[in-house]
Nucleic acid binder design. Structure first.
Lengths: 181, 181, 181, 181
DNA sequence: CATGAATGAGGTTTCATTCAT
DNA sequence: TATGAATGAAACCTCATTCAT
């Protein structure tokens, strides 16, 4: 009973935090997050000892979903479309729900440390890349650093500038052109 | 006579603000900027009535330099290399000196309004693009929205993740490949 | 349960504010009020979003007490003494506890708006006046504007100059002579 | 030449200070006074070492004018009308040009000390009072303390509430009735 | 265990005063 | 001598965090 309650509270807090922080920026008050979640601030602090910890949790949560999507596509029949679909999906996600990558970078939080060991998002993405390259759908000289750099870049800009679907599609088309052999 | 002093102080303040804000983010205390500039906080507030105003001034200053570079390249003999050199230069700039585009977006500052009318950075970039397209060095379907989106994206990521020269070069190569016909 | 604590704190804040502001004027630091009340500054700001709001609250509180006194006397057997007793009482109050009418005027606070609808102090005073005039204890040509003007005048001066009881009595005697038929 | 300049500057500063402080209250910035006077703040500080000193100077100036008026009326043929005319004149003055008596009280400035020895405003007023009493136009039991209390009271209220001529006349009529035998 | 009132350090901003020009 | 830029203390106010209820 209690565990169910706690679980639901945690989910509500994460959801509220994601929404509020996306809307009002990293400096949004904890009060506002609590209000949005319909709980007291103390309830948040029970789960997350610090505001930073709450941010980390959001990122971890998002990375978890990202890793799931990557893994789901890593066994697709067609490696090329799977790879580009994942890329497009991530950017779309960033536009709609925000990733906070920038905010987190700015806050000096070490995201890698927080997610290490929990699940292997990097490995999942690498699988998508390698398979696409083996299928000759992505140029061989594209490495993980470049891929992550491009992913981050498009996510950040999509989020910051609020790319609409049209702009997102046409811009990604250029990037995809650059990735293809 | 005092004017010279004021001018020098203003320059020092802008320089210090750029450095401190790049280092500590948008939430860096004004005190720190003042200390870095070697002036009192009141001196900053005399020139910039608000923290936001200071940010705007930095962005305006940076845009001015950008516009100058764009214009300088807009009459180059080879439009293609000029275009890509400008792109690379902007991203390099973002890595080294920061642009604060993200911070400014987050703060809800309308950068366009602040720079409108002073100089035409957009026009200067458009000239570069058009000339490169006429020289068949850039695909015809690339428009200003896509170009600005890609510029913003790479600048943001380069700044956030601290791209080194190697990563910058290889990543931009992919983007440039995408832009070329 | 916490409500009781908050209520007591609110009372302490109002009391402290009244005392400190009466002593040090409108420019007394909030810190001093907080110290006097034995709370943190944040506690005051939780109840009163702004310094002005705190002032308003004090005035409203004082007006409430004034209205109560006026109403209590409005059914007295002898309308004349009741009227003059009220007048004297208000001035005595101003001397002892301050009314801040001046401070509030200076701050540009619309006191009437703040108290309107809550209780009818003006009506209560008008009743006292009308009854005293019907009993032929106050000249017929005295209207509410003149009465309020005289009340304000004596309160302000009593507060500013710190009238002692002797001066208050003798000065009011002159004013009362002027009000009597 | 210089002396003439300085004299004119001093007058301009005093006038500007009176206007600005009357309009914006005691907390008006020195900058604003300087701007209104058309001089730099340094020029004010050359004449008045401190803001308080400037206030004092304004009060002294006003008292000087008041004393002049009192003396001018102290030899009038009819002591009664002279006395009441002076009273009315002072209140009218307070309405139009403000006296800052309250502001000065609030600032804790000892006005008496500042004016002592320079001219005898108190003596001039006392002469008016005594002559009016000898002419049986003012009640004998009215003393200087009561008179000054009433003057201050009406001036303060007139200033604070912005008495129009009508209210001023009718209210003073009541006070004058109280002063008459 | 959840709540939200209280805390108080620290942020932005103002302004009396000084002093180089 | 007049100016106004610079100073920096101190004001108001916010908000992460704690803790009594």
């Amino acid at each position: 009973m209690m565990r169910a309650d706690a679980q639901r509270n945690l989910a509500r807090v994460l959801e509220a935090a994601e929404e509020v922080l996306a809307r009002d920026g990293l400096s949004a008050p904890m009060r506002e997050i609590a209000r949005q979640a319909g709980v007291g601030v103390g309830t948040i602090y029970r789960q997350f000892p610090t505001k930073e910890a709450l941010y980390q949790a959001i990122v971890v949560d998002r990375k978890r979903r990202l890793a799931e999507e990557a893994r789901a596509l890593s066994t697709a029949a067609e490696p090329g479309p799977a790879f580009f679909a994942f890329f497009a999906r991530v950017v779309e996600d960033a536009t709609a729900k925000k990733v906070f990558a920038d905010a987190l970078s700015e806050a000096g939080i070490d995201v890698k440390a927080a997610t290490a060991g929990t699940y292997d998002i990097r490995g999942a993405i690498e699988t998508l890349l390698t398979r696409a390259q083996r299928a000759d759908q992505v140029r061989a000289e594209v490495g993980m650093p470049e891929l992550l750099a491009l992913l981050t870049a498009t996510c950040l800009a999509a989020q910051h500038q609020g790319w609409d679907e049209r702009l997102r599609t046409s811009t990604l088309e250029i990037v995809f052109n650059g990735l293809r052999p």
